[in-house]
Design a protein around this nucleic acid. Sequence first.
DNA 1: CTGAAGTGCTAAAAGGATTTAGCATGGAGA
DNA 2: TCTCCATGCTAAATCCTTTTAGCACTTCAG
Lengths: 335, 335
Amino acid sequence: MAKRATLTDVARLAGLSPTTVSMVLNERPNSRLSEDAAERVRAAAAKLNYRPNPAARGLRLGKTRTVGFISDEVTITRYASAMIRGLLEVAEERDHTVLISESGRRADRIASALELMLDRQADGIVFGLMGAKQIDVPVIADVPVVLSNARSASGLPCVLPDEFRAGFEAAHYLLERGHRRIAFIGRSEALLDPVLSVTIGARYAGLDAALAESGIEFVHQVDGRFWEPDLGYAGAQEVFQRTEVTAIIAANDRVAFGVYQAAQERGLRIPDDLSVVSFDDEYLASYLRPQLTTMQIPYLDMGRVAMELVLDGDPPTETLVPMPLQERGSVRALS
Amino acid sequence: MAKRATLTDVARLAGLSPTTVSMVLNERPNSRLSEDAAERVRAAAAKLNYRPNPAARGLRLGKTRTVGFISDEVTITRYASAMIRGLLEVAEERDHTVLISESGRRADRIASALELMLDRQADGIVFGLMGAKQIDVPVIADVPVVLSNARSASGLPCVLPDEFRAGFEAAHYLLERGHRRIAFIGRSEALLDPVLSVTIGARYAGLDAALAESGIEFVHQVDGRFWEPDLGYAGAQEVFQRTEVTAIIAANDRVAFGVYQAAQERGLRIPDDLSVVSFDDEYLASYLRPQLTTMQIPYLDMGRVAMELVLDGDPPTETLVPMPLQERGSVRALS
DNA sequence: CTGAAGTGCTAAAAGGATTTAGCATGGAGA
DNA sequence: TCTCCATGCTAAATCCTTTTAGCACTTCAG
């Protein structure tokens, strides 16, 4: 593989100066160059397969066409990696690349990841969290910063899922299908703390608003802060003992998984005897049988939007991304 | 935030030349500089919070301390993102950063992702696949390339899980605990095609070798190429109808998930009535109850090893990474 | 006493792109 | 005829770091 062609090589071949070549290739607005020259430049560049040297360009421009992505554990866990896909998609569309770094949520590691990105002269920075929480990010003046699925106390621009609407729609979906005796598993005061979640409150509020609109309340609610299958299993058992329901809303898919297990043990068939709706759309949701109807956390779109905001600059304080309903087989319409 | 200090700024403050500063900070071996000068340089650098400009350095050196990672869908799916964690860990230890790009397994997209990385002057490239398959990667002379969880027809250096040993150990684990009547679900001739998998053959061979060592054979095997819960469910039903077993080896965790469902329906309790062992260690494995004993695909370590090989240069043709046994609750020792 | 070797440091070039300032040329207007 | 302006292009500076070549001085060996 021959050495990479430089601007000077192109200029020589085209019989013009590097200045001219640069101007043509960058299509500078106010440079009145002849169409003939432009044509020769383009031909020469193509012939030599010219690629601008990013280091040289970065040195001169102070821009690197690079965006840094720092996350608590988005990259490295399985839940939220769709966020990266969104970031990468947009970056590629806009001819940027993405530098990735992990850091827990320990402030010092965040700071050092950030420093790394700034050292590398990233043109912008996206912070992404797996769960929508509040984080402290050092404020930086130089480059645009956007938080994806997170909020900061300092009011940095952020992208969050529209949990209120999702909560509303989840409940509405059941109500619309005639359900009136509905239980909820996973209510927790503790989760209203922004350190743990900045969106759960909206999820609750959306659910409650939908029920209120129909003039009803949950027939039973199970408190629970740790949203794992255990909670769903025990919670569903509690529901079955206390009252009769036609539907259960689970705080997330893992809780719903537990509900499935409890239902099966009790001989209840989903969705014939019990409808289930939940939140998140983890991959688990499509493995269950019947597959789970759930409100998706839009990691992909949050990634896309965050990247767009960073690249466009001047992002608004808060951007909400819709959580689409994944309609599958766990809900039955009552006649 | 004041403008970033340059080498010249440091030199001025230290009362020395940029040359000297560069030599001190890079600790060049054969430059006999006074300890006094070195001390002054370090003090000045610290005071100005000097960070070398990576673009300038990259321009001069032709190195970027950057490694490109191209994958089919490792980043963007949930299964294998631990590989990235491994890559990032090692990169950080060695003061490198990772550029990430996705591309399906379509040759043109791979080529363009590769071109992107070379454009950006990556010092090395790692290709990572979610499932261990064969891919065609254009051979490049300039930079080291390592395949992680993949093999190429052209014999590029690769890192693969040690499936033979894993197969052997999985079977051995059951045999050691007194199991003799064992079924296997997920045998498939078709999967021996390297386009679909380059490791399944070894997995089978390891299983067979362990049984052979004990002088027995599987009491029943279920063929199946698509390793989803359906196969496990139907396969287990088939096993139960045909014969009596004390243990089932599932081709992967999703198949095992189906086995769990079939067992539960039939009133068999795991591990009391039926032991289950499988492969992969997806996160599903720890959600099942009882949790699944499974041979882990070592994505993290494959990532680490691949990055180390790229950074060290001159990687061997094939490196095997052990697949650790995740010992959980799905196996019972027969008295 | 002279030449060689060693010491501690620096000037200047190189790396490849972008950008500012400005050089010829030709035509239009006075 | 002379000035002015537009046109089409280029020389040279700039971004920041690394590296080569070498300067000026001292010490040592012969």
